[in-house]
Simulated scan of single mutants.
Amino acid sequence: MKTLVIYTYPNHKSLNYAFLQKIIKGSNENPNIKELQVLDLYEEKFDPLLVFSEHKRRRDMYRDPRIEKYRTQITWADKIVFVYPIWWGRPPAMLMGYIDQLFSANFAYRDKKGLLPEGLLKGKSVVCVSTMKGPTKYPLLWLNNAHKILMKKALFSFVGIKRVKFFEFGNMESLKGKQTKKLEKIYLYFKRVDR
């Protein structure tokens, strides 16, 4: 299994970075994970802005040479892991800008007759590891599960990815947030995952 981890947090002295380190440690100890790549969007200085003009059109994003290396990473990966905070009920703008550019027509999906397109990323799996200040049940009870619906139905299902696993960790700024236990949970998951 080839695994791509996309890390989206601007601080390497953070809990999100600690989760990233546990993912790397568990993956390196897992015989099912043959190769691992990490993409740190902030360290990479990824430009999340979409710019369209008469020379650069939305329908041509799948050929944009500026993001070819990122398309190559997604094509290469069997499993894509996203590590990010939930801010205002959704992933950060940096990650959404990456998604807007990478999960484009004729790369991630192809329009066809009918209501839904053909997903071109079939066979891949996704894991979302997200943290938030509020309670774990906040997205479910207050926001009608908007985060998971956005990621699973509006994005991953649309591009053909059916296997999606979520770890939504709440109360992460609290002294009673059980951070050590949650870090261990992530480490053990990536040490043992087999697809």
Rank of each mutant, 00 (worst) to 15 (best):
P91C: 07
E173H: 10
K176Y: 10
S27K: 02
G89L: 04
I86Q: 07
L102C: 08
G170P: 07
K176D: 15
V51S: 10
G26V: 10
R90F: 11
K162F: 05
E184L: 07
R71C: 04
S27R: 05
V159E: 03
L50D: 11
P139Q: 09
V159Y: 01
E68M: 06
N32P: 00
P139L: 06
A154G: 12
E173W: 11
L120V: 03
K152E: 15
W88L: 08
M1D: 02
P31A: 12
N16V: 03
G134M: 13
L188W: 11
L95V: 08
W142A: 12
E43L: 05
L150I: 09
A108D: 07
S104I: 10
F166D: 05
P135D: 15
T131H: 10
L20W: 05
L175G: 09
E29K: 09
Y189C: 04
T180Q: 14
E43K: 09
L140I: 06
L155E: 11
I186Q: 03
L36S: 00
F169W: 07
E54D: 13
A146T: 11
C128Q: 11
M132C: 06
K122C: 01
L183F: 08
F167S: 02
L143M: 14
I80D: 02
M132E: 12
L155Y: 11
K45N: 15
E118C: 02
G26P: 03
K25D: 15
K181Q: 15
A77Q: 04
K133N: 15
D64Q: 05
K124T: 02
V164N: 01
K22W: 10
M1S: 06
T3N: 14
F82K: 04
Y187P: 04
R58P: 00
L49P: 01
V193S: 06
G123P: 00
P91S: 13
H12P: 00
A105C: 12
H147F: 14
R110E: 15
N32A: 08
I86A: 04
Q179W: 07
G170T: 14
Y138D: 12
V126Y: 01
R71P: 01
G170I: 06
S104Q: 09
V81L: 02
S104C: 15
K148A: 09
P48Q: 09
K13C: 08
L143T: 08
